[in-house]
Computed example of a mutant assay.
Amino acid sequence: MTKFLLWAIPILFSASLNAQQTANHSITRLRTEIEQLAQAAQGRVGVTATVLETGASVNLNGDQQFPMQSVYKLPIGMAVLQQVDQGKLALSQTVHVTPDEYISKRQHSPLRDKYPTGADVSVAELLRYAVSESDGSASDVLLRLLGGAKTVMASLKKLDITGIIVANTEKEIGSDNAVQYRNWATPTEVVALLRAVENGRNLSASSRTLLLHLLTETETGLHRLKGLLPAGTVVAHKTGTSWTIEGLTAATNDVGLITLPSGKHIAIAVFVSDSKADQVIRERVIAQIAQVVWNHWHSH
């Protein structure tokens, strides 16, 4: 028996090594494909995608900083739900919103458009506006309830996430084009945040369920991560978009959790920054990247 085991060890080691080499080669091909797709954006593209259950991962510029725009409403929403869990806020509590809290007309705010003279809105409804509808006014009101961006940063620190910076309100971001670059993230750290969402880290079961529901009901960016995936694919995601100024678009983003037919989850972050391409092309690049990632891990 001992002789057999000694004889078998090299064979087993060789088989394991060959399997690892095949996996590495496969990821290299996937990264090359992503890199080729990214060229159409005519800008800087950052991608990190990880199968949470296996740890298999691919990235392109995953550690570079990209302006988040409304992607930053995800960590804001998480911080609000953490305070709900701690009893500092309640989903049912009513918040008075005044017109002077509304962002500018050129920024996206269904809340402002529905209640131009102000309104009394529940925390739960503010979360829905901010996360599912990417409402900048609702996001700013939630930041006010939290006591400012420092509370969001403290929430991220508890998750050991250092590569996401929330520093300003939406109103401030809308007032100066340069401010958006101060509110940045790396794709790799956003994937870490998505892992925390999926695992329910620092969230109660009910808060995790609510957040995933709000992300799944996201009404923006339907031609991005979801654009080329099979019908019925569950995608819990958050978009972010800047204005186009003098032919340059600072941010076209989509990050989220994609559920594979196997039940496994791909956490993916795609950032397109400082792009000269039009919106159709920018969104198609994101959709194509999500598609090749989905195809790769579905087939594997």
Rank of each mutant, 00 (worst) to 15 (best):
A130C: 04
V131I: 12
Q82Y: 13
D135M: 02
S92M: 09
S132N: 07
L127A: 04
L81Q: 06
G136S: 08
D113T: 10
Q86L: 14
E125S: 08
T94H: 14
S137W: 03
L111H: 01
R106S: 14
S122P: 05
R112A: 09
P116F: 08
Q86Y: 13
Q82C: 08
A130K: 01
G87C: 04
V141N: 09
K88L: 11
E133F: 15
L127R: 05
Q107A: 12
G87H: 04
A138Q: 05
V141S: 05
Y102P: 00
D135N: 03
G87K: 08
T94P: 14
Q107I: 09
G136F: 14
L91Q: 02
V121N: 05
A119I: 00
G136H: 07
E133P: 09
V121T: 06
D120Q: 08
V131Y: 09
V84C: 06
Y102F: 10
R112I: 00
L127M: 08
P110Y: 04
S134I: 11
V121D: 02
A124Y: 03
H96M: 14
A119V: 01
Y129E: 08
G87L: 04
I103H: 05
T117F: 12
L126Q: 08
P99E: 04
D113L: 08
V84T: 07
D113A: 09
L126T: 02
S134N: 10
G87V: 05
E133D: 15
R128L: 11
V123N: 07
G87P: 07
P110K: 02
Y102E: 02
D140N: 10
L127Q: 00
P116H: 13
D100V: 05
H96V: 15
P110H: 04
E101Q: 12
Y129A: 07
V95M: 04
S139G: 09
A90K: 13
L91W: 07
D120R: 12
Q107D: 13
K88Y: 12
Y129Q: 06
D85S: 09
V123F: 03
L127Y: 06
G87Q: 07
V131R: 05
V84A: 08
R112L: 06
D100I: 06
G136I: 06
A119R: 02
P116K: 00
D100Q: 12
Y102R: 02
D135V: 03
R112Y: 03
Y115E: 00
S104F: 14
Y115D: 00
P110R: 02
Q107F: 13
T94S: 15
D100H: 08
S122I: 00
Q82G: 15
G136R: 06
Q86P: 14
L111Q: 01
G118F: 00
E101V: 00
L142P: 01
Q86G: 04
Y115S: 00
T98G: 10
K88D: 11
S92K: 11
D140Q: 05
Q82S: 11
A90L: 11
S92C: 10
P116R: 04
S104C: 09
L142K: 00
I103Q: 07
A90W: 11
S139M: 03
T117S: 10
P110L: 06
T117Y: 10
L89Y: 11
P110C: 05
L91A: 10
D140T: 03
Y102S: 00
Y102T: 01
E125M: 13
D100K: 06
V121M: 04
L81A: 04
G136K: 10
